[in-house]
Design a protein around this nucleic acid. Structure first.
Lengths: 222, 222
DNA sequence: ACCTGAACACCGTTCAAGT
DNA sequence: ACCTGAACACCGTTCAAGT
């Protein structure tokens, strides 16, 4: 099975990202990748070394999609913009949450560039020293946690269970917790898109207000 | 290979948690579990149905360790206490981050009880409606993100790489980002335990201040 | 009711061998 | 330098068969 063009690292990564975007992290296997590339079940090893490495390269690849513009507005606007862009990245590539949790030490040029951007924005805000690291990390964490909460259970054609059905299933477990049951029902009856959006903005506002409070305690040098 | 005592659901889950605690999520396989239980490679199927289900049951099992006491102090203290307890749970069972990200829809009595506790504390603080859900979720997200950032790369005996060596390895990638390099070095030279603690407390304070700011905008009814 | 053995369809990775 | 074939040591899951 000779393929039309010669393979290289870039084409392998591109095929990996396509597989990940369409079918998720589990779908990325050495053998499926070989099939997609019209090649042998283990082509990737020459080009990227290992599965773990390939996931890291694919992650770095999609991080390159981020614009990371500094608009010149307030640090609040810059940080909010960064968080919203990152959120969109995670929604375009839902496998990112799983990739980060199973391979926690991913790094690469685009990720490093993103980390630096976060630090720059937080630095402008007035953070220094370790506060700088922690402020940046809190933004990333916020988006990661938001995306995690939004990850749909992977049930491809499993008779798409409606929210109402889910509530029925857990109603027994919730018998002792009327407040929790009330919230489950409220969420089941709300429009998912609207709730997702508002939920993210709630978290973002809380985060920015919290950072602001921290800055107010340590006012900038005159 | 007859085993001394009869198996039941509880013993299977207990063995699973021990395997997870000692060797991580990857170590939990049907065959290893069978070996540990002095039984066949597929014993678990009769008792828990599937691997996915077993991970959920193990997660719920460890969530039962949480005390979830309401101290009667301020909502801030209660929420901080809950977050710190949850953090300790994640550090006792480092596989939890991966479990939540690979099986996002885990639920069970102990988890439901924890969710209810979060809602109760947030409700006392003055949150209502969807704000209640989002406030609770932000606490869980905060701890999850903190634990994620702390997950050590699983390199068992891989010549424990020192932080300084890591900095050397990425120094090339960081050439264009002096601020980022400076932060890497500062973190490499700091005591990990102290930094972890301070990092968590920073995030927690930011979160609580942010929630407080939200409450101030919507003062409680008189 | 509970457990075993064998099988199916997969994995990641290595390595000698090909071109 | 790049790719293939075959093999090794694993997976989760099913199912007929045992007790």
């Amino acid at each position: 099975m000779a393929n039309a063009e010669r393979l290289d690292r870039e084409r392998v990564i591109k095929a990996a990202v396509e597989l990940l975007d369409s079918d998720g992290l589990d779908a990325l296997s050495t053998r499926r990748l070989g099939t997609v590339l019209n090649s042998s079940p283990n082509v990737m090893y020459w080009h990227v070394g290992s599965m773990e490495n390939l996931v890291g390269l694919a992650t770095d690849q999609v991080f390159a999609e981020l614009t990371l513009a500094i608009e010149g507005a307030s640090w609040r606007d810059d940080l909010a913009q960064t968080a919203r862009d990152l959120r969109l990245l995670f929604s375009r590539h839902p496998w990112l949450t799983e990739a980060f949790s199973t391979h926690p030490r991913i790094h690469g040029p685009a990720i490093v560039r993103f980390q630096n951007h976060l630090l720059q924005v937080c630095s402008r805000a007035g953070f220094e020293g370790f506060d700088l690291d922690w402020a940046g990390a809190s933004v990333f964490t916020q988006v990661l946690g938001d995306a995690w909460g939004r990850t749909p259970s992977p049930m491809p054609k499993d008779r798409t269970t409606t929210p109402t059905e889910i509530v029925e299933q857990v109603r027994g477990d919730l018998a002792d917790y009327p407040l929790l049951l009330e919230r489950y029902e409220a969420l089941a009856n709300a429009d998912p898109g609207t709730v997702d959006e508002a939920s993210f903005e709630f978290g973002l506002t809380v985060l920015l207000d919290g950072l602001q409070a921290r800055l107010n305690q340590r006012p900038p040098a005159p």
